[in-house]
Write a protein that binds this DNA or RNA. Structure first.
Length: 925
RNA sequence: GGGCGGUUAGCUCAGCGGUAGAGCUCUCGCCUUACAAGCGAGCUGUCGUAGGUUCAAAUCCUAUACCGCCCACCA
């Protein structure tokens, strides 16, 4: 099953007969592999019969450059995909891009402006041609940058939200929503981006608290006999932060139970600076405690006022135009045409002069900014297309309830459902040109025509049924997210539900993205998925945190604190970066940039590279006359007694090795450890915990394989032990497989350099096997390690140069193991094991072994003695603690048996060590 | 106003019910023939604070402080 025949074989990027360079140079090997994975992509085979595993890319903006968020997304996706591919799934990593309505239009308009041209000069059609030209030339850089990351995407399935199929999907969606009554056109208060000249959805607005002024104004009553409760005769006071909008006021509102104003309700008051009177009304929405307890109602310029206005049947005249200037007959001539913020100051000045301004004080107010243009959003009343989301949200909520979609980390499940529960209608029309033009037509009477469900692809102005009418198409386009919410299935062929890809690869398995677009994208895909395809679009949502700068701040263009992943690639190599991303992504926590993690990754790649270099040298030495890679492979297969066949599995190789009689303790130990680590890493990968997986693999590879196994294997290798040589190679290759999803470049390169023709990416993921567990080897090698560490420590204590030999006596319960492996211990500790030592000794007591060296005159015994006495006290403490627990009836009665057993073992272990240490100290009286 | 996350070694972070860990930093010694992007030996923590649950708490619960984030129609 790993013989993935649909992946074309190609020459590896390295001539495997050439020596590996001493230091790993990522730049030398990465471009070759990246190029190969781009030009010979990992094509998903819809007919393979293997279980599918699909992840669609969060489509980056076509205008975009790779930033750390993308790098993180795609590293995690590719790691999962590479693992699942090796594990035998039919994997599909579907790449593509989003047309990104506003962003793209803004980019192209800016370029045109440099040439002194506006989009209106060109007209819609020509402008769109220009955008497509721009896309052909400059768009999609990001996909090449992504390829550099080494992603194993299926580039033959690349999609774009405005390509033909996806555009068709968008149209079908709209037609269906319209005829189901979910999509409707209505006059509502919407968010207007004055700079971009388009409406925005709630989500496209960032709230920012800004220091502003709250002004208290006096509105004169028509009936001068009436009085406000505060004693002011003939007026009612209101508070506002937008005095420039008073000209559009339609009422003054107080709370129905507010006794202070009860006698004024029903009266009329005059808007300052005008001669216009508005009624005083009551509404539940008024907060009695806030401000002065009364507010002006301006339905056209405030969402709350709009709702109050609807309840009371108020008119909603506007005094602000689409450019944000004061306009209309209601505005006194002096302010007409003024920009809204300039007008605010002018109005305040006029109110002060007229004596209607009672008070002006500082007030923090949350204002809405367009997330694109950063300009304060203007609420305006406008006729737009909306989608009634509630029923769709309910479908998702039911699905979440049933566990059809799992979020990881789990806590986002609640965030997800809370948002869905409070969902509001979605304004889907945008006053842009770049995007999917809304397939709705209007006749002269304003009647709406939308293509029929039977034939959604037929434009209404081409529909014979309407031939007698003059139809005009809606000029607006859809919100970009109205197409990206279809992404998991529009990319797979929907609305053709019979298409092979859709049937085979939908629903997808995992969605990987940052939690910051949970509402924008994830929740909307859920709703679209359930409503249009009848099922959840993905099983698992894996959310990662935000990538922050070194100070822990969000990266943003305005702050200029962005970090360019491409520079990180140059500086550390892509593998190192991927290592860092995986290492840093734990539990959906935000990630603070830390160059040290990238250095760690670079060092690790180098470490692996050099371990491989060592193995390769030893393999070459052991097989004189070996020239070609085939010879090498054949040799090692023979050495490990595995029948030559297509791609032997790691487990089989290790199992065969284990049967050999020429393995040493270290060989048996590393095989057992490798087996355990394989199980751990695999479990973490299956749980989507990539951080945990890479940590386990890093620690094992560096600390156990490189620092202990390779060192311990050296004597046997020098002695020509073929079992050890085969173990070295098998374990290394096994490690390469485990690390491949995380660091595909260096592992592929090494694997090729070891003589393999078939690239590593298509090999089988190693599985753990109970047969490979060797408790005895683990126990024994631990004793050996303790002895070596103690011997080294003593040499250090004596100030003996590491190269110089030293006579060492090993005693203790496990001393025989050390003696049985004397050559190994002597080699890696650089000591000579002796049966006896005459005279006083410097000694270290460890678990299972006591290590002694002869004391010479140069050592400060007092210091050493002090340390040993501390240790003795520590042993005592440990023994006392353990005995204390064992002496407690509650503990013995309630703790699990293995915990009790562990405490017994501790008493015995520390007891033995204490006894040995006391013996040692006895020689000093 | 509601919700969520964080607080663990000098720094950045894992661990999240059974003897406190990593990388970097720091100290000492090493160019030991895979690797100085390295090797060996060390030093470093009342796991924010206060209660509670438990045989056992960094880990669970309840408060609380401080940082950060998200949501929200107090003009």
């Amino acid at each position: 099953m790993t013989d993935v025949t649909h992946i074309p074989a190609a020459e590896t990027s390295t001539d495997s007969d050439s020596a590996l360079t001493k230091a790993f140079d990522p730049q030398a090997i990465e471009p070759g592999w990246a190029q190969r994975w781009r030009s010979e992509p990992f094509r998903a085979d819809a007919t393979s019969g293997r279980e599918p595993f699909t992840i669609v890319i969060p489509p980056p903006n076509v205008t975009g450059n790779l930033h750390l968020g993308h790098a993180l997304d795609n590293t995690l996706i590719d790691t999962l995909i590479r693992h699942r591919r090796m594990a035998g799934f039919e994997t599909l990593y579907l790449p593509g891009m989003d047309h990104a309505g506003i962003s793209t239009q803004v980019v192209v308009e800016r370029q045109l402006r440099e040439q002194g041209v506006s989009r209106h000069d060109l007209g819609r059609e020509k402008f769109l041609d220009t955008v497509w030209e721009w896309k052909a030339e400059s768009g999609g850089i990001i996909l090449n940058q992504l390829a550099r990351l080494g992603v194993s995407a299926d580039w033959t399935r690349e999609r774009f939200t405005m390509d033909e199929g996806l555009s068709r999907a968008v149209r079908h969606q709209f037609v269906r929503l319209y005829h189901d009554g979910a999509a409707y056109r209505g006059e509502r208060i919407v968010n207007w981006d004055v700079a971009a000249q388009t409406t925005l959805s709630e989500l496209e607005i960032d709230r920012e608290v800004r220091r502003g002024k709250m002004t208290t104004l006096a509105y004169r009553l028509r009936d001068p006999q009436a009085a406000a409760s505060n004693g002011e005769m003939g007026e009612i006071r209101i508070a506002t932060v937008r005095p420039e909008t008073i000209f559009a006021d339609q009422a003054i509102a107080v709370h129905p139970t507010d006794t202070r104003f009860a006698h004024l309700v029903g009266q009329e008051a005059r808007i300052p600076l005008t001669g216009r009177y508005v009624p005083i009304i009551t509404d539940e929405a008024v907060e009695m405690e806030f401000g002065v307890g009364a507010l002006k109602i301006t339905p056209a310029h405030d969402p709350t006022d709009f709702e109050i206005g609807e309840r009371h049947g108020l008119a909603r005249p506007s005094v602000i135009d689409l450019d944000g200037n004061l306009t209309g007959d209601l505005v006194p001539a002096a302010f007409r045409g003024m920009e809204r913020f300039t007008a605010r100051k002018a109005v305040v000045k006029a109110l002060t002069e007229s004596g209607d301004l009672i008070e002006e004080k500082d007030h923090d107010t949350a204002i809405g900014l367009s997330e694109r243009t950063k300009v304060p959003v203007e609420p305006i009343v406008s006729t737009q297309w909306f989608v009634h989301m509630k029923p769709f949200a309910q479908q998702v909520l039911d699905g979440l309830e049933k566990g059809e979609i799992t979020l990881t980390p789990e806590r986002y499940g609640k965030v997800n459902s809370d948002w869905l529960e409070n969902i509001r209608d979605w304004n889907i029309s945008r006053q842009l040109w770049w995007g999917h033009q809304i397939p709705a037509w209007y006749d002269d009477q304003g009647t709406i025509y939308v293509p029929s469900p039977e034939n959604p692809d037929l434009d209404c102005d081409q529909d014979p049924r309407y031939a007698h009418l003059t139809l005009r198409r809606d000029p607006d386009v859809f919100d970009t997210w109205f197409s990206s919410n279809l992404w998991p299935f529009s990319t797979l062929g929907w609305p053709d539900v019979d298409s092979e890809d859709f049937r085979r690869f939908y629903p997808t398995q995992v969605l990987v993205t940052g939690y910051d677009i949970l509402f924008f994208w994830v929740a909307r895909m859920q709703m679209a998925g359930y409503s249009l395809t009848g099922q959840a679009p993905f099983q698992t949502v894996m959310l990662h945190g935000l990538y922050l700068d070194e100070k822990g701040q969000k990266m943003s263009k305005s702050k200029g604190n962005g970090i360019d992943p491409l520079e990180l690639f140059d500086q550390y190599g892509v593998d190192a970066c991927r290592f860092a991303f995986a290492f840093l992504s734990t539990g959906g926590q935000d990630i603070r940039h830390d160059p040290r993690r990238f250095e760690q990754g670079r060092n690790f790649a180098n470490k692996l590279w050099n371990a491989a270099r060592f193995a390769r040298m030893r393999l070459a030495e052991a097989t004189p006359g070996l020239t070609g890679t085939d010879d090498l492979t054949r040799y090692v297969r023979a050495a490990s007694e595995v029948p030559v066949g297509p791609m032997p599995r790691s487990r089989d190789i290790l199992a065969a090795l284990k049967e050999r009689d020429d393995l040493g303790l270290a060989d048996r130990w590393i095989i057992s450890r490798l087996n355990a680590v394989t199980a751990e890493a695999t479990a973490h990968l299956n749980d989507f915990d990539l951080g945990a997986a890479i940590r386990v693999l890093y620690a094992f590879t560096w600390d156990e394989f490189c620092d202990w196994y390779i060192e311990a294997a050296k004597p046997a290798l020098s002695g020509g032990n073929l079992g050890t040589l085969a173990t070295l190679k098998a374990v290394l290759e096994h490690i390469l497989k485990l690390l491949h999803p995380f660091m595909p470049f260096v592992t592929s390169e090494i694997y090729a350099a070891l003589g393999h023709r078939q690239q590593l990416a298509v090999h089988t993921w190693p599985v753990q096997s109970a047969d490979l567990h060797d408790a005895h080897a683990t126990h024994a090698f631990d004793a050996l390690r303790a002895a070596v560490a103690a011997a080294r420590s003593l040499k250090n204590e004596l100030g003996i140069s590491p190269q110089d030999r030293l006579n060492v006596l090993v005693e203790g319960e496990l001393a025989s193991i050390v003696h049985d492996n004397a050559p190994v211990v002597e080699a890696i500790a650089r000591v000579t094991l002796v049966p006896t030592l005459e005279g006083r000794t410097l000694t270290l007591v460890e678990q299972g072994v006591t290590v002694r060296v002869l004391l010479d005159g140069t050592v400060d015994i007092a210091e050493w003695l002090g340390k040993q006495k501390k240790r003795l006290a520590e042993f005592d403490k440990q023994i006392r603690q353990a005995q204390g627990k064992l002496g407690s009836e509650a503990f013995v009665a309630r703790a699990p048996a293995e915990v009790i057993e562990e405490e017994r073992r501790r008493v015995a272990d520390f007891g033995a060590q204490k006894q040995r240490l006391e013996g040692v100290l006895a020689q000093f009286g």
